[in-house]
């Protein structure tokens, strides 16, 4: 098993340990997940896929819950924060 996974968050390369979720990758990249309807920064709240606060685009697919998605090699993550 590899001991790290390389992916991109908003174009910046980042390396995370196996078992890391995309929400963790976003935090490690120093980013927030999204801007709210009125433009405020938001990050994960429930951490278990309920609240939809941690939505990001993964490989071009918007509105993915980053707390429920595990990082994969070469993933392209975009926040709208």
């Amino acid at each position: 098993m590899r001991n790290e996974i390389a992916l991109k968050v908003n174009g910046t390369h980042i390396v995370v340990p196996p078992g890391a979720t995309v929400a963790v990758a976003v935090a490690l990249a120093g980013q927030v997940c999204r801007k709210s309807a009125s433009g405020a920064p938001r990050g994960p709240l429930c951490g278990m896929g309920i609240c939809f606060e941690c939505r990001v685009a993964i490989n071009g697919q918007p509105h993915c819950r980053s707390c429920q998605a595990f990082c994969e090699e070469g993933m392209d993550v975009r926040t709208n924060g």
């Binding site: 078992g19 929400a23 990050g43 429930c46 951490g47 595990f70």
Partner: peptide, 29 residues
């Protein structure tokens, strides 16, 4: 799921559910 109650500033990033933070740490935060 956890119950969340609104208070001033609760929408700031890093205000997170108790179980939510634990789950994030289990996922390598």
């Amino acid at each position: 799921r956890e119950r969340f109650l609104p208070f001033p500033g609760w929408t700031l990033p890093n205000v997170i559910g108790a179980g939510g933070l634990q789950a994030m740490v289990k996922c390598r935060l």
